[in-house]
Simulated assay, not measured.
Amino acid sequence: MSANGRVVGMTTSGDFGHTTGAPLVFGYLAGNDMDLREIEVEAFGRRSRATIVERCAYDPAGERVRI
């Protein structure tokens, strides 16, 4: 993970979140970078813009669940 041209953390896993309808990436940030809201994540040689969310990344009301 990077921000402003410097490495700020490391991803641990990622996949498509079917209940959220968006890709999700989990990782670690250094304590002094916890105030960042937008970063870049690199996977398989490709960088993508990402937004950090502090809340749970799921649909607690079940509004997106399809049976």
Rank of each mutant, 00 (worst) to 15 (best):
G45N: 02
G45T: 00
Y28E: 14
A30K: 11
G45R: 04
Y58F: 11
M10G: 06
A43S: 13
A50C: 04
M10I: 15
E40Y: 06
E63F: 14
R49P: 03
S13M: 15
E38G: 00
D15E: 06
S2K: 10
G17M: 00
R49H: 05
V8A: 07
V7M: 05
E42K: 07
G14Y: 12
A30M: 01
D15G: 09
G45P: 05
T19C: 01
I52W: 08
A22D: 06
E63M: 15
A50E: 06
T20N: 08
G14P: 00
G27F: 03
D35E: 12
E42C: 04
G14Q: 01
G31I: 07
R64V: 07
T12V: 10
H18P: 02
N4R: 04
N4C: 05
A61N: 15
R55F: 12
F16K: 01
G27W: 01
G9T: 07
M1G: 08
D33T: 12
A22K: 06
G17F: 08
I52T: 03
S13R: 05
S13E: 11
M1D: 09
E38M: 10
E38T: 10
A57H: 10
V25H: 04
E54N: 15
S13A: 14
A50N: 03
F26H: 15
R46T: 15
E42S: 06
T11G: 05
G31V: 15
V41I: 07
D15Y: 12
R55H: 14
S2W: 01
V7Q: 10
P60Q: 03
T51A: 14
R49M: 06
M34N: 06
R49K: 11
F44G: 07
S48C: 11
R37T: 13
G17Q: 02
R55S: 07
I52P: 01
V8G: 02
S48N: 13
